[in-house]
Design a protein around this nucleic acid. Structure first.
Lengths: 209, 209
DNA sequence: AGCTGTTTCCATCATATGATGGATTTTTAT
DNA sequence: ATAAAAATCCATCATATGATGGAAACAGCT
């Protein structure tokens, strides 16, 4: 069964898809309450009622955006997992961190929205399935932190969360952190990669090999 | 010259202070746009106009909240710096991380609001002095990552940011992460401390001593 | 008690915002 | 070319929200 989201993804030039793209960016920048349907409609260049025609109420559009970025993350991680399979841990970390940082700096709305979802509440109870990212366990598994994807210890999950969140932090915090570091964007991204590897590699390669 | 904020801090039972406390919590939970002046007034148990009488417009109250939590962080860090002075690096890290995590889990609004400020824009341009936390450099200095507080290299600042943000993430993300870890709150806090030390200690003690 | 300055609340306003009905235009299929 | 379906826009509503003026209640002082 094709959901509205599937339909939007099929044709990136469809109005549904255009709206979704703007909504991703704006919800990511200003949050749920900080973004109005009028702002989204204006960015797309359509009337507000056209937006409602395609996506229904604001909360439904937001939900679609969340599902969309979750799917993006899921598939990127699956791709990464294949690529690093069989290599030694420190190399796996290096590749995974470099690629993930690149990927997210090109799509900052993903980090913005993820952080929004983690750290803030919406006043209107988000009834829809929160879909807690189960890929946290997958990453832990592919890093050799757990024997089984299902029974992943809390400790391992916490460690994976730390790394992922650190990436999101640098991506999402660019406009805040970059000025205080007095470097250019390229250097900032490089430093983000290096810093995360600086923390991840010695820690993980000490115990696990 | 005593600012309105100073006045509020002088007497924690004053109406000004009560409003500030509720505002801290609510802005931290729902963000600037997600929090209405009516919500704050209701939590305090006063009429909305009383709130405006004391703090003026919403943006001014928000600004006061930000300054307030910044001051809290600043003084806590100063206290910590004294306490760890002279000890070996790994011990300094252990103490600082443990205490900072405790401090913030008792005042989650600080982490919530800090993250909000880092990672989201307010639609109404925040004209007021952003006060980029200059204590990042202070921490770097007290960890021996830089010779001078003034000329702290970007690399060191990035590393300090990573640690601070990691703490904020665990504090602020409790309601999201705790359910997916299937542990109780106490264990969650313990794990947060351990995980951050897991990353910080090997990385820093490898090069610096 | 009576006066004065402070604090609080009630009523109200203007605007922003989410949402919709219905007319109009555009597209698609025959 | 025409009819049906799909997409878009205009006008409008109800409510939420930030903000304020002015009356009432309160506190401190003589």
């Amino acid at each position: 069964m094709a959901t509205p989201l599937d339909k939007a993804r099929q044709n990136p030039n469809s109005m549904k898809a255009k709206i979704l793209t703007s909504a991703r960016r704006l919800f990511g920048t200003y949050g749920f309450h900080g973004t109005t349907t009028r702002m989204i409609a204006k960015e797309v260049g359509i009337d507000i009622s056209t937006l409602y025609y395609h996506w229904g109420e604001k909360g439904d559009l937001y939900e679609a955006v969340v599902l969309d970025i979750n799917e993006g993350m899921r598939s990127k991680l699956a791709e990464l997992e294949k690529k690093i399979k069989g290599r030694p841990l420190s190399e796996r970390l290096r590749i995974a961190i470099d690629e993930m940082v690149e990927y997210l700096f090109e799509r900052p709305e993903i980090s913005n929205l993820t952080i929004f979802r983690y750290f803030t509440k919406n006043r209107h109870e988000s009834t829809f399935d929160t879909k807690v990212p189960e890929f946290i366990s997958d990453i832990a598994y592919s890093m050799g932190l757990t024997e089984s994807r299902k029974k992943c210890p809390a400790e391992a999950k916490m460690q994976v969360l730390a790394i992922i969140n650190a990436i999101h932090n640098y991506v999402s915090g660019e406009s805040f952190f970059l000025p205080m570091l007095e470097v250019d964007r390229e250097e900032y991204i490089r430093q983000a990669k290096e810093t995360i590897k600086f923390f991840a590699i010695p820690s993980f390669t000490k115990s696990v090999q």
